[in-house]
Simulated scan of single mutants.
Amino acid sequence: MGMGRELGTTPPTIVTAAGPCPAFEVLEPMRQTSPLVFCSPHSGRAYPASFLSQTCLDDASVRRSEDLFVDRLFEFVPALGAPMIVARFPRAYLDVNREPYELDPQMFDGPLPPYANSASVRVAGGLGTIPRIVAEKQEIYAAPLDRTEALSRIETIYHPFHRTLSALVERTQAAFGFALLIDCHSMPSTVRAVPGGRRPDVIVGDRFGTSAAGRFVAMAAARLSVLGWNVVRNKPYAGGFITERYGRPHRGVHAIQIELNRGLYADEERLVPHRGFDMVQASLRDFVALFGAEIEAEMGRPAAAE
Protein backbone atom coordinates (compact mmCIF):
# COMPACT_ATOMS: atom_id res chain seq x y z
CA MET A 1 0.00 0.00 0.00
CA GLY A 2 1.20 3.52 -0.68
CA MET A 3 0.17 7.13 -0.64
CA GLY A 4 -3.57 7.72 -0.89
CA ARG A 5 -4.39 9.84 -3.93
CA GLU A 6 -6.52 12.24 -1.92
CA LEU A 7 -3.56 13.17 0.27
CA GLY A 8 -1.68 14.92 -2.48
CA THR A 9 1.53 14.39 -4.40
CA THR A 10 3.89 11.44 -4.34
CA PRO A 11 6.26 11.52 -1.34
CA PRO A 12 9.86 12.59 -1.90
CA THR A 13 12.47 9.90 -2.44
CA ILE A 14 15.78 9.12 -0.79
CA VAL A 15 18.62 7.30 -2.52
CA THR A 16 20.05 4.35 -0.63
CA ALA A 17 22.81 1.95 -1.65
CA ALA A 18 20.04 -0.29 -3.01
CA GLY A 19 18.49 2.53 -5.04
CA PRO A 20 15.75 5.12 -4.57
CA CYS A 21 12.84 4.55 -2.18
CA PRO A 22 10.03 6.71 -0.77
CA ALA A 23 11.09 8.85 2.17
CA PHE A 24 7.79 7.93 3.83
CA GLU A 25 4.62 6.04 3.01
CA VAL A 26 0.98 6.05 4.00
CA LEU A 27 -0.43 2.58 4.51
CA GLU A 28 -4.08 3.00 3.66
CA PRO A 29 -7.05 0.75 4.41
CA MET A 30 -9.37 -0.20 1.58
CA ARG A 31 -11.91 2.00 3.35
CA GLN A 32 -11.26 3.95 6.53
CA THR A 33 -13.66 2.65 9.18
CA SER A 34 -11.78 3.86 12.26
CA PRO A 35 -11.24 7.32 13.79
CA LEU A 36 -7.69 6.25 14.70
CA VAL A 37 -4.63 7.46 12.78
CA PHE A 38 -1.23 5.85 13.38
CA CYS A 39 2.23 7.34 12.96
CA SER A 40 5.62 5.63 13.12
CA PRO A 41 8.20 8.43 12.78
CA HIS A 42 11.33 6.72 14.12
CA SER A 43 11.36 3.19 12.69
CA GLY A 44 12.95 4.02 9.31
CA ARG A 45 15.74 1.74 8.12
CA ALA A 46 16.45 3.17 4.65
CA TYR A 47 19.76 4.99 5.08
CA PRO A 48 20.64 7.49 2.34
CA ALA A 49 23.96 6.69 0.73
CA SER A 50 25.05 10.31 1.10
CA PHE A 51 24.36 10.17 4.85
CA LEU A 52 26.37 6.97 5.29
CA SER A 53 29.31 8.68 3.60
CA GLN A 54 29.09 11.50 6.16
CA THR A 55 28.81 9.52 9.38
CA CYS A 56 31.77 8.31 11.37
CA LEU A 57 29.73 5.46 12.90
CA ASP A 58 29.69 1.84 11.79
CA ASP A 59 26.53 0.26 10.43
CA ALA A 60 25.39 -1.17 13.76
CA SER A 61 26.11 1.93 15.83
CA VAL A 62 24.26 4.31 13.52
CA ARG A 63 21.11 2.19 13.92
CA ARG A 64 20.92 2.64 17.70
CA SER A 65 18.43 5.47 17.37
CA GLU A 66 15.85 3.38 15.51
CA ASP A 67 12.53 2.50 17.09
CA LEU A 68 13.20 -1.09 16.14
CA PHE A 69 10.53 -2.61 13.87
CA VAL A 70 7.69 -0.49 15.22
CA ASP A 71 6.42 -0.11 11.66
CA ARG A 72 6.25 -3.90 11.36
CA LEU A 73 4.57 -4.31 14.73
CA PHE A 74 1.72 -2.05 13.65
CA GLU A 75 1.56 -3.00 9.96
CA PHE A 76 -1.82 -4.66 10.54
CA VAL A 77 -3.67 -1.40 11.21
CA PRO A 78 -4.91 -0.85 7.62
CA ALA A 79 -6.67 -4.23 7.87
CA LEU A 80 -8.56 -2.79 10.86
CA GLY A 81 -9.67 0.26 8.92
CA ALA A 82 -7.05 2.79 10.06
CA PRO A 83 -4.30 4.57 8.10
CA MET A 84 -0.67 4.75 9.21
CA ILE A 85 2.12 7.06 8.06
CA VAL A 86 5.55 5.44 8.24
CA ALA A 87 8.92 7.15 7.93
CA ARG A 88 11.34 5.10 5.83
CA PHE A 89 14.26 7.50 6.42
CA PRO A 90 16.10 6.95 9.72
CA ARG A 91 15.80 9.12 12.78
CA ALA A 92 19.59 9.63 12.80
CA TYR A 93 19.20 11.43 9.45
CA LEU A 94 16.15 13.56 10.27
CA ASP A 95 13.80 13.61 13.25
CA VAL A 96 10.23 14.63 12.42
CA ASN A 97 9.28 14.39 16.11
CA ARG A 98 10.94 17.76 16.65
CA GLU A 99 10.10 21.32 15.73
CA PRO A 100 11.12 21.92 12.10
CA TYR A 101 14.25 23.91 12.95
CA GLU A 102 15.61 22.68 16.29
CA LEU A 103 19.23 22.86 15.15
CA ASP A 104 22.63 22.97 16.80
CA PRO A 105 24.67 25.77 15.17
CA GLN A 106 27.94 24.01 16.02
CA MET A 107 27.04 21.17 13.66
CA PHE A 108 27.04 23.25 10.48
CA ASP A 109 29.55 25.03 8.26
CA GLY A 110 27.81 28.42 8.40
CA PRO A 111 25.22 30.44 10.27
CA LEU A 112 21.71 29.08 10.59
CA PRO A 113 18.59 31.04 9.64
CA PRO A 114 17.38 33.43 12.36
CA TYR A 115 14.22 31.37 12.91
CA ALA A 116 16.18 28.28 14.00
CA ASN A 117 15.56 27.23 17.59
CA SER A 118 19.06 26.53 18.87
CA ALA A 119 18.25 26.92 22.56
CA SER A 120 15.93 23.95 23.09
CA VAL A 121 16.70 21.25 25.62
CA ARG A 122 16.61 18.68 22.86
CA VAL A 123 19.26 20.51 20.86
CA ALA A 124 21.42 20.76 23.97
CA GLY A 125 21.12 17.00 24.36
CA GLY A 126 22.23 16.38 20.78
CA LEU A 127 18.78 15.28 19.61
CA GLY A 128 17.52 18.11 17.46
CA THR A 129 15.74 17.95 14.11
CA ILE A 130 19.04 16.87 12.60
CA PRO A 131 20.54 14.87 15.47
CA ARG A 132 24.15 15.17 16.54
CA ILE A 133 24.27 11.85 18.41
CA VAL A 134 22.68 8.42 18.40
CA ALA A 135 21.16 6.81 21.47
CA GLU A 136 24.46 5.83 23.09
CA LYS A 137 25.60 9.47 22.87
CA GLN A 138 27.97 8.66 20.04
CA GLU A 139 28.67 11.51 17.63
CA ILE A 140 27.16 10.88 14.22
CA TYR A 141 29.34 13.16 12.09
CA ALA A 142 33.09 13.47 11.73
CA ALA A 143 32.96 16.97 10.23
CA PRO A 144 30.57 19.94 10.05
CA LEU A 145 27.57 19.47 7.78
CA ASP A 146 26.88 21.54 4.72
CA ARG A 147 24.20 23.93 5.94
CA THR A 148 22.32 24.01 2.65
CA GLU A 149 22.16 20.23 2.39
CA ALA A 150 20.99 19.94 5.99
CA LEU A 151 18.23 22.51 5.53
CA SER A 152 17.21 20.71 2.35
CA ARG A 153 16.33 17.63 4.43
CA ILE A 154 13.81 19.74 6.31
CA GLU A 155 12.33 21.38 3.25
CA THR A 156 12.09 18.27 1.09
CA ILE A 157 11.20 15.57 3.67
CA TYR A 158 10.18 17.04 7.04
CA HIS A 159 7.56 19.47 5.73
CA PRO A 160 5.98 17.00 3.27
CA PHE A 161 5.80 14.40 6.04
CA HIS A 162 3.89 16.75 8.32
CA ARG A 163 1.65 18.03 5.53
CA THR A 164 0.67 14.44 4.85
CA LEU A 165 0.11 13.63 8.52
CA SER A 166 -2.00 16.78 8.90
CA ALA A 167 -4.08 15.75 5.89
CA LEU A 168 -4.68 12.30 7.40
CA VAL A 169 -5.82 13.80 10.69
CA GLU A 170 -8.03 16.39 9.00
CA ARG A 171 -9.61 13.80 6.73
CA THR A 172 -10.35 11.55 9.70
CA GLN A 173 -11.85 14.36 11.76
CA ALA A 174 -14.04 15.39 8.83
CA ALA A 175 -15.32 11.84 8.41
CA PHE A 176 -15.90 10.93 12.06
CA GLY A 177 -16.29 14.26 13.82
CA PHE A 178 -13.08 13.66 15.75
CA ALA A 179 -9.69 11.96 15.31
CA LEU A 180 -7.29 10.17 17.63
CA LEU A 181 -3.64 10.06 16.56
CA ILE A 182 -1.52 7.28 18.05
CA ASP A 183 2.19 8.05 17.78
CA CYS A 184 4.07 4.74 17.93
CA HIS A 185 7.54 4.42 19.45
CA SER A 186 9.83 2.02 21.27
CA MET A 187 12.15 2.46 24.21
CA PRO A 188 15.24 0.57 25.39
CA SER A 189 14.68 -2.21 27.89
CA THR A 190 16.95 -0.29 30.28
CA VAL A 191 14.30 2.40 30.72
CA ARG A 192 14.08 3.74 34.26
CA ALA A 193 12.24 1.44 36.65
CA VAL A 194 8.94 2.50 38.15
CA PRO A 195 8.23 2.40 41.92
CA GLY A 196 8.56 -1.19 43.05
CA GLY A 197 11.60 -1.81 40.86
CA ARG A 198 9.80 -3.02 37.75
CA ARG A 199 10.55 -1.59 34.34
CA PRO A 200 7.52 -0.52 32.30
CA ASP A 201 6.44 -2.55 29.30
CA VAL A 202 4.43 0.34 27.85
CA ILE A 203 4.37 4.08 28.52
CA VAL A 204 1.29 6.01 27.45
CA GLY A 205 2.04 9.71 26.96
CA ASP A 206 -0.42 12.57 26.68
CA ARG A 207 1.81 15.55 27.47
CA PHE A 208 0.64 15.40 31.09
CA GLY A 209 -3.03 15.59 30.27
CA THR A 210 -2.92 18.21 27.50
CA SER A 211 -2.91 16.27 24.20
CA ALA A 212 -5.93 13.98 24.62
CA ALA A 213 -9.11 13.60 26.62
CA GLY A 214 -8.32 11.97 29.94
CA ARG A 215 -10.95 9.28 29.44
CA PHE A 216 -9.31 8.20 26.16
CA VAL A 217 -5.91 7.94 27.82
CA ALA A 218 -7.35 5.98 30.74
CA MET A 219 -9.10 3.63 28.30
CA ALA A 220 -5.88 3.04 26.37
CA ALA A 221 -3.87 2.36 29.54
CA ALA A 222 -6.53 0.01 30.88
CA ARG A 223 -6.80 -1.91 27.62
CA LEU A 224 -3.01 -2.31 27.42
CA SER A 225 -2.87 -3.42 31.07
CA VAL A 226 -5.48 -6.12 30.44
CA LEU A 227 -3.02 -7.63 27.96
CA GLY A 228 -0.69 -8.30 30.87
CA TRP A 229 1.70 -5.43 30.35
CA ASN A 230 3.03 -3.11 33.05
CA VAL A 231 1.70 0.27 31.87
CA VAL A 232 2.66 3.70 33.19
CA ARG A 233 1.71 7.20 32.07
CA ASN A 234 4.01 10.02 30.98
CA LYS A 235 7.17 9.03 32.85
CA PRO A 236 9.79 9.23 31.54
CA TYR A 237 8.21 9.76 28.10
CA ALA A 238 5.24 12.12 27.93
CA GLY A 239 5.23 12.61 24.17
CA GLY A 240 7.27 14.71 21.78
CA PHE A 241 6.56 17.32 19.14
CA ILE A 242 4.02 15.19 17.24
CA THR A 243 1.88 14.57 20.31
CA GLU A 244 2.14 18.22 21.33
CA ARG A 245 1.54 19.60 17.83
CA TYR A 246 -1.45 17.51 16.85
CA GLY A 247 -3.18 17.00 20.17
CA ARG A 248 -5.97 19.58 20.33
CA PRO A 249 -8.71 17.93 22.41
CA HIS A 250 -10.81 21.11 22.49
CA ARG A 251 -10.90 20.98 18.69
CA GLY A 252 -11.73 17.29 18.47
CA VAL A 253 -8.23 16.02 17.71
CA HIS A 254 -6.55 13.86 20.33
CA ALA A 255 -2.98 12.54 20.33
CA ILE A 256 -1.45 9.78 22.44
CA GLN A 257 2.11 8.47 22.35
CA ILE A 258 2.74 4.78 22.98
CA GLU A 259 6.25 3.60 23.89
CA LEU A 260 6.89 -0.16 23.79
CA ASN A 261 9.75 -1.82 25.63
CA ARG A 262 12.00 -3.22 22.90
CA GLY A 263 13.00 -6.16 25.06
CA LEU A 264 9.47 -7.54 24.62
CA TYR A 265 10.00 -8.27 20.95
CA ALA A 266 13.58 -7.67 19.76
CA ASP A 267 17.20 -8.50 20.45
CA GLU A 268 18.56 -5.02 21.08
CA GLU A 269 22.19 -5.98 20.53
CA ARG A 270 21.74 -7.89 17.30
CA LEU A 271 18.98 -5.56 16.08
CA VAL A 272 16.65 -8.38 15.04
CA PRO A 273 13.17 -9.45 16.18
CA HIS A 274 13.08 -12.36 18.62
CA ARG A 275 10.45 -15.00 19.31
CA GLY A 276 8.32 -12.54 21.30
CA PHE A 277 7.62 -10.43 18.21
CA ASP A 278 4.57 -12.35 16.98
CA MET A 279 2.98 -12.40 20.42
CA VAL A 280 3.48 -8.67 20.92
CA GLN A 281 2.05 -7.95 17.48
CA ALA A 282 -0.99 -10.13 18.18
CA SER A 283 -1.55 -8.31 21.48
CA LEU A 284 -1.29 -4.94 19.75
CA ARG A 285 -3.82 -6.06 17.18
CA ASP A 286 -6.24 -6.95 19.96
CA PHE A 287 -5.58 -3.60 21.59
CA VAL A 288 -6.22 -1.59 18.42
CA ALA A 289 -9.41 -3.47 17.56
CA LEU A 290 -10.91 -3.19 21.04
CA PHE A 291 -9.69 0.32 21.80
CA GLY A 292 -10.98 1.61 18.48
CA ALA A 293 -14.39 0.10 19.16
CA GLU A 294 -14.45 1.57 22.66
CA ILE A 295 -13.55 5.02 21.37
CA GLU A 296 -16.31 4.94 18.78
CA ALA A 297 -18.85 3.74 21.34
CA GLU A 298 -17.74 6.47 23.74
CA MET A 299 -18.22 9.13 21.07
CA GLY A 300 -21.47 7.64 19.78
CA ARG A 301 -20.25 7.61 16.19
CA PRO A 302 -21.12 5.12 13.45
CA ALA A 303 -18.69 2.30 12.88
CA ALA A 304 -17.70 3.62 9.47
CA ALA A 305 -17.32 6.88 7.64
CA GLU A 306 -19.66 6.82 4.63
Rank of each mutant, 00 (worst) to 15 (best):
L271M: 12
P273C: 08
F277I: 09
A255C: 11
A293K: 14
R275I: 13
I256F: 01
A282E: 08
I258H: 01
F277R: 10
R262P: 03
V253D: 05
G252H: 05
A289N: 04
A255D: 09
Q281C: 10
A293M: 11
N261A: 13
V272Y: 14
R251Y: 09
A293E: 14
H250Q: 15
V280D: 04
R270M: 14
G263A: 04
L271V: 13
P249F: 04
M299W: 08
D267N: 14
V253F: 05
Q281D: 03
D278R: 13
Q281Y: 12
E268W: 09
L260S: 01
I295S: 07
N261G: 01
Y265E: 08
R270N: 12
L284K: 01
H250T: 11
H254D: 08
E268Q: 07
M299N: 11
I258M: 07
A282T: 01
L290W: 06
R251P: 01
Q257E: 11
A266G: 13
L260Y: 06
A297W: 12
A255P: 08
L264A: 01
A297F: 12
R262I: 03
H250V: 11
E296A: 15
A266R: 03
E259M: 05
Q281H: 05
G263R: 05
F291N: 02
R270F: 12
E268A: 06
P249C: 05
E259G: 05
R285C: 13
L290C: 07
R285H: 09
R275G: 05
G252T: 08
V253G: 04
A293I: 01
V272S: 12
N261P: 04
D286T: 14
D286Q: 11
G263T: 00
P273A: 13
R251S: 14
R262V: 06
M299K: 15
G300C: 07
G263N: 02
S283V: 06
E294H: 05
R262S: 12
E259N: 02
V253N: 03
D267C: 04
G276F: 03
E259S: 11
R262K: 10
I256C: 01
G263H: 04
M299A: 14
E259V: 05
R251D: 14
E298H: 14
Y265G: 02
P273Q: 09
A266F: 10
F277W: 04
R285P: 00
L290G: 12
